[in-house]
C-alpha cells in the first residue's frame, strides 16, 4: 500500500530500503526518498513499517 501519497512511496519501497540499505529511522529514510516532505501525515506509518521490517528481519536471523 501507499505510505506516502504525496510522493508515491509504498510500504515495499520502505521495506527494501531497510533490508538493502540498512535504513533504521525516518531520518535515514529521508536520505533515500522524499517521504514526508509535503504534508507529513505519513511519517507515523512509515516509522511503523521500518520497525516491523527490522523485527521481521531479526526473527528470521534468530531462526536461521
Amino acid at each position: 500500500m501507499f505510505v506516502c501519497l504525496c510522493k508515491g512511496i509504498t510500504d515495499s519501497d520502505i521495506q527494501q530500503l531497510v533490508l538493502e540499505h540498512g535504513v533504521g529511522s525516518i531520518r535515514e529514510l529521508k536520505q533515500h526518498v522524499a517521504l514526508g516532505s509535503e504534508c507529513g501525515t505519513c511519517t507515523k506509518v512509515a516509522q511503523m513499517v521500518i520497525d516491523n521490517t527490522i523485527i521481521d528481519e531479526t526473527l528470521f536471523k534468530n531462526v536461521g
Binding site: M1, F2, L5, T10, C42, V45
Partner: peptide, 15 residues
C-alpha cells in the same frame, strides 16, 4: 485523516 490506498485490487479491498 490519512488515506489507506492499496496498490492492487486485493490490497485495496484490504485497506
Amino acid at each position: 485523516g490519512a488515506l489507506s490506498i492499496g496498490e492492487h485490487t486485493v490490497e485495496m479491498i484490504k485497506c
